[in-house]
Design a binder for these strands. Structure first.
Lengths: 214, 214
DNA sequence: GTCTATATCCGGATAGAC
DNA sequence: GTCTATCCGGATATAGAC
């Protein structure tokens, strides 16, 4: 009985906590960290404001939790690539999964973008540690591909920035992209077209051609 | 004497107005529209808060003025290109001037980016009017280049997005880029390298080679 | 665990003296 | 044109009843 109750309480906690995180994400996207009020998050989550403070001690804490959720999803992209991999296959997969993430979780991309634009006050650590090492590792692999003559000699770091910039653009600037393209929202076809365009341009730029299978 | 006084007053007005606009730009970058307080702008401009309200009726007005400044600078990029132009020359110049703008006025780029990310609440009109027409016109020219066999057949709209995304990335995400590259700030050399990388990748992707002279 | 009521402070905006 | 003093709504955060 005790364990049963405990389970229930834990479930409610998780359910509410999730509601709050989702609501917070939406509000932070619309108004930024400072511009977002706890009240507006509470309203969106359909909970009293005090509950938000009960689950997440304060606004900063809640924001950090939102950021952590985002970084976790980010970190799962492109885990495995090494000197023996095929560049075309890896780059294609990289572009594909980044576009997919931008499509399925644009809010995450947007919050991250705003955070960086404002000088990364809550993410300095992450960028100068994890992200820097990540780029260094991947750059080294790309360097080895170039040394092996598998692709054109292009600056690996800039190549990674280029893939980030282009894929995230469709998530972060969706308002502008959709308006200019005269669409209401993205659909699977549109995303596929964009992914193909980016893959084509970037692979060609690297002196590669599309791989057999993705 | 009267005209002399009038001139002086006008000069002071312009001087103060400029101070405020510059201070506002810096604060809006750091905290977003909603997150920025008139007090912080006043402090940065070293003027009493009431003066800000005297020069710009309210916060929205001031923000719009900042945005207009930015859009004016933006609109001067790539005024002339037509069916007879050389694609490599035009694209090179386009990338070059966008990078230059990102370098000299990163705050403008950042405020614009945040505005779009948040759904362009103050720029909907501009995007669905001016910007859409701009892209349509330039796309038509690129289409004609492709029809003339001057370059590879790539989606012109996506190509424009790609140039925007990659060049603005270095302004908007400078915190991340510099941290990853382990630099304190951009220098002329670094900007030149990046510009060369982007030009090389994008021209190659379009099946072009660098032009004789820029 | 939940929610009402409230303390405390900071926001935009303006009145009115200089 | 400039600036002090002030209004008032809304912000974060918490105390304490349930």
């Amino acid at each position: 009985m005790t364990s049963n109750k405990k389970y229930k309480v834990g479930a409610i906690r998780e359910r509410n906590s999730d509601r709050i995180l989702i609501a917070a994400e939406e509000e932070f996207v619309l108004h930024g960290f400072k511009g977002t009020s706890m009240q507006s998050i509470a309203d969106r989550a359909e909970l009293p404001k005090a509950n938000i403070h009960y689950y997440f001690k304060n606004k900063t804490n809640l924001y950090q939790a939102v950021l952590e959720n985002i970084m976790t999803a980010w970190n799962e992209v492109l885990a495995d690539m090494n000197e023996d991999s095929d560049p075309a296959t890896v780059l294609t997969k990289f572009i594909h999964s980044k576009m997919q993430l931008s499509y399925t979780n644009p809010n995450g991309s947007k919050i991250f973008a705003m955070e960086i634009i404002q000088g990364a006050p809550h993410l300095r650590e992450y960028i100068s540690q994890d992200m820097r090492i990540w780029v260094k590792e991947k750059s080294a692999v790309i360097e080895s591909w170039i040394a092996q003559g598998k692709m054109r000699a292009v600056d690996p770091t800039q190549l990674i920035f280029m893939i980030w910039a282009t894929t995230q653009h469709y998530a972060d600037f969706n308002t502008q992209v959709l308006e200019v393209m005269n669409r209401r929202e993205y659909d699977d076809d549109g995303i596929q077209n964009i992914t193909n365009f980016l893959t084509d341009m970037i692979l060609t730029g690297c002196g590669l051609t599309a791989p057999q299978a993705v």
